[in-house]
Simulated assay, not measured.
Amino acid sequence: MTTFTSRDVSTAVVPASRDDIWAIVSDPAALAELTPLIDTIEPAGDLWTWQLKGISALGVTVAPSFTERMVLDAPARMEYVHEPPAGTNELAGAHGTYDLTELSPTSTRLDIDITLCADLPLPKFSRRAVEKVMATTMRRTGDAFAERLYERLGIDGADWVEHRVDGAEVVG
């Protein structure tokens, strides 16, 4: 097994209140509905088990589940780190943050930083190709997440602008 990693960082100014956004992103069922790669999120206190849909790379398809320790600081920050139950070996995990900064009562900056790791039965020399697929998939997932969040908030997505860490700008 080889561990492959990909990180996606994005920032968007969302024309909605921080509380409205927080109510959605801190709800495991809503978060799963908004995120195309996630099938379900099952909370058990501070530990949430994330079940991914099938992900394919270089002829290998996996649908891992993994456990995350969630630290919620309402309504400003959600942080999570991979924490598998004792005695288990989960083949994937994530860590990251959702930071919500109130700009006005009707405007919030949403910063999302996600790193996904997966152990796959592929050789190390395939790292560049696999991580490129992972990055592309995560980017598309982030774009779909933004569209679904706007729809859920009842906002016209044509007005949103997202800035990524790589300097790319995505306009809805």
Results as ranks from 00 to 15, higher is better:
F4L: 03
T5Y: 05
R7E: 12
R7I: 08
V9G: 01
S10N: 12
T11N: 12
T11R: 14
A12E: 12
A12H: 03
V13P: 00
V14F: 01
V14A: 03
P15K: 09
A16G: 08
A16Q: 08
D19Q: 12
D20G: 05
D20H: 04
A23V: 06
A23Q: 05
P28K: 09
A29I: 07
A32N: 06
E33V: 04
P36S: 10
L37N: 08
D39E: 15
T40Q: 12
E42F: 00
P43R: 12
P43S: 07
P43W: 07
A44G: 13
A44T: 10
G45E: 04
G45K: 04
G45Q: 15
L47N: 07
W50Y: 12
Q51S: 05
K53F: 06
G54N: 06
I55A: 08
S56M: 13
A57N: 05
L58N: 04
T61I: 10
T61N: 08
A63W: 09
P64K: 14
R69N: 07
M70K: 11
V71K: 10
V71W: 01
L72T: 11
D73C: 00
A74H: 04
A74C: 01
A74P: 15
A76D: 14
R77H: 10
Y80E: 01
V81M: 03
H82M: 10
P85N: 06
P85Y: 13
A86K: 11
A86Q: 10
A86V: 14
A86N: 13
G87T: 05
G87Q: 03
G87D: 02
N89I: 15
N89R: 14
N89T: 14
L91W: 09
A92W: 12
A92V: 09
G93W: 15
A94M: 09
A94H: 02
T97L: 13
T97M: 11
L100M: 10
L100I: 14
E102A: 15
E102G: 05
E102K: 12
E102R: 15
L103K: 07
L103E: 11
L103M: 10
S104G: 10
P105N: 06
T106V: 14
T106S: 07
T106K: 07
S107D: 13
L110W: 11
D113P: 08
D113Y: 05
D113M: 03
I114N: 08
T115E: 11
L116D: 02
C117I: 06
A118F: 05
L120S: 08
P121S: 12
K124M: 06
F125V: 15
S126C: 12
R127K: 11
V130S: 12
K132I: 02
V133C: 02
A135D: 10
T136N: 09
T137N: 01
M138Y: 07
M138N: 06
R139M: 06
G142Q: 07
D143T: 13
D143L: 15
A144H: 02
F145S: 05
A146G: 03
Y150N: 13
E151I: 00
R152D: 00
G154V: 00
I155R: 00
I155G: 00
D156K: 03
D159I: 08
W160A: 07
V161E: 09
V161M: 04
V161L: 09
H163Q: 10
H163F: 02
R164P: 00
V165W: 06
D166N: 11
G167D: 05
G167P: 00
E169Y: 00
E169Q: 14
V170H: 13
V171W: 04
G172D: 02
